[in-house]
């Protein structure tokens, strides 16, 4: 766990990652709050807070007496939100670092293109 951020947020992110990777499928059941607490060795109230965050966002939904499930369209919603954050969390810090290293904008574009073609040939 990352010390700087609330644990419940990190739990919610890990569940989202599992949904994005397909480890948790839409309409599939997710582990119970207590199972999350045991697995990540955290207080059950914290695990519950993370799960509830995803319920509020419509990523998970409750079936009374049965458990928690991944909502239809959850993957799409997570992807859309993370795309919005992509600029803020990846592009902006990269540009700041590039500026402090004196890497010019056209060089950045070139570096990205090089990386992309390297990935394609792999």
């Amino acid at each position: 766990m990352d010390e700087a951020r609330p644990i419940f947020q990190q739990i919610a992110e890990r569940v989202e990652n599992d949904i994005l990777s397909g480890a948790l499928s839409e309409e599939g059941q997710v582990p119970s709050t207590n199972e999350f607490a045991m697995f990540y060795r955290i207080n059950p109230a914290t695990a519950g807070k993370g799960v509830n965050l995803l319920v509020e966002q419509g990523i998970l939904y409750k079936r009374r007496g049965i458990g928690m499930f991944v909502a239809a369209g959850a993957r799409e919603r997570i992807t859309a939100r993370r795309r919005e954050l992509f600029v803020l969390e990846y592009i902006a810090p990269m540009l700041a670092e590039a500026a402090s290293l004196g890497i010019k904008p056209d060089q950045i574009t070139q570096l990205i293109e090089n990386q992309l073609s390297e990935r394609e040939t792999r």
């Binding site: 951020r5 609330p6 644990i7 914290t46 807070k49």
Partner: peptide, 10 residues
């Protein structure tokens, strides 16, 4: 709460 203490210093 433990949650409010976490990350409350840098």
């Amino acid at each position: 709460s433990a949650e409010s203490l976490r990350g409350s210093a840098a």
